[in-house]
Design a protein around this nucleic acid. Sequence first.
DNA 1: CAGAGGAGCCTTTTT
DNA 2: GGCTCCTCTG
Length: 670
Amino acid sequence: MKLNPAQDQAVHFIGGPCLVLAGAGSGKTRVITNKIAYLVRKCDYKARNIAAVTFTNKAAREMKERVLQTLSKSEARGLMVSTFHSLGLDIIRREHKTLNLKAGFTLFDDQDQLALLKDLTEQELDGDKEALSRLVSTISNWKNDLVLPTRAARIAQDPEQVLFAECYARYQRQMKAYNALDFDDLILMPTLLLKTNDEVRQFWQNKIRYLLVDEYQDTNASQYELVKLIAGERARFTVVGDDDQSIYSWRGARPQNLVLLKDDYPQLKVIMLEQNYRSRGQILQCANILIANNPHDFEKKLFSDMAYEAPVRVLFAKNEEHEAERVVAEIMGHKFMNGAKFGQYAILYRGNHQSRLLEKQLMTNRIPYKISGGTSFFSRTEVKDMMAYLRLLVNPDDDNAFLRVVNTPRREIGPTSLEKLGTYANSRGKSLFAASFEIGLEQTLDGRGLMAVRAFCNWLVRRGEEAARGGAQDAVRDMIKDINYEEWLYESSPSPRAAEMRMQNVSTIFKWVSQMLEGSELEDAMTLPEVVIRLTLRDMMERGEDEDDGEQVQLMTLHSSKGLEFPYVFMVGMEEGLLPHQSSIDEDNIEEERRLAYVGITRAQQALTFTLCRERRQYGEQIRPEPSRFLLELPQQELDWEHNRKPPSETERMEKGQASVANLRAMFKK
DNA sequence: CAGAGGAGCCTTTTT
DNA sequence: GGCTCCTCTG
């Protein structure tokens, strides 16, 4: 397919900084992949000097695939396609000495982070959950704004901020002792380093000679800075974004970065992609009209040549079980009539918890499905345990991991022993592991407890040495064997069936680790420390044998659907309180929710179906939700409300204002 | 020290 | 309503 004039311009402009404002479905991935090909084939760039950065692993994977459809393997060799966080990790790994980090550092996920902060603030916050979560987000915001503890203390506004700054300093010291980093550090540390260290900056500017950033509207302050530092004076970069798809402001994303770029680079070339190649007419109409309710920095209007065909439907369900039943029945019926593949259907929802009933329903009907995103796999105890063991193998000073598995399976190391060990370690400023070997410990902890702890630590040393000697595979295998984990699973699981499932998950992890250690045609072999970090970054789902034969219904949150497209899309739970989410209604943050709805709608190619419930159970309580305001904002002539329960016409709504909602509610109760 | 049972929380979204 | 963490008991 030929590029349209705007796309063509976006691909071929390489003389300076370039901003591409790309509406949903306007072919931005095509622009990026074509541009990479253009740089390599026509402009004498080496693939290894080009980096393309996205936000999610899914997007990075997809882009890799797309590039390999355009470029041959040898042409693409060395091309860097990764998430911001992986790029940061690459920089840290190369510069870890300058950053004063030991090689086998651990990456703390948010649960580890939370546990540590809770521990560190026991006296001040005393388990006050709200304050704790404020602390977590305050620290994260500071890091995203490149604010270090000393400056945090200086800019603190009120007593709580002063306290938080002090906790922040404590937290950083402790992380150092654990040889651990958190997610925000993966951006913060490279950015600060590149800012202050000329030599390092030059190296990376020389390495990355052309930078492409996808989903630019999702960058936060430190990522914005990182882009600028890498691009340097020459400012050879292309960023692609859509302010209407900015759905991550809650984690520090600043869509204003799109506007800011104009000020920082007066020579910035701005290109708009407005032709949509994805969605049927009605669907695009819905998207356009919905998003017109938001204020805009850049006016853009998507248009399309695609035909109008089936209208967008709105289905009602009695309750959430019924909703799941209906969606699944719709999919089965539609598939039967049209001979589509299950993989062409996607079910999108606001919150992860909504997947449960859908899963159940799909399972009862023996429909294959795939849930992407969500934390379920990594939040299973057996998976967490295995991760903790792997982390200890690489970095025994990781106290969180230590505490998690020191007595799993049972090693006769109870809370009393651990408390004694903890107090001692604390007083010595050492990790639990390091403290275990000290002579001084014997005054606090003795006898069986001490023996058991030391036995465990010695075992860790042995396995760690084996891994460091290069036998990472063997070390991991021996580790699982040594701890008799399988036996422990059968002992501790409610049924043999459950134990089997759990062992499956353990095997999955083991399989992933092996594959990553060995590498593949497309990916270099990794070292064990790296494997462990990449697992924490969730940077590895389904590599190797692709069971994805296009026969799995796709389930995901609206957030993780961004950047994807599906022939048939269901958006479930279109109710006030769910979408828009109640907390966003309370905080008067409807615009972002509207963008979220916009993202969902624009995923659909052929058909779009909304569903909503008349009754829903929430915290065990029965509620009668109202239909989402977004449904009412859509162009009603394009909508097919089931049973012809159309809400009042546009003019009627204008005249009656609020009354339309009441009408609709009355209609519901029939 | 382990398992059972209860209190209390929860449902925003991700790297 | 269901999950996790905590406490109490054996």
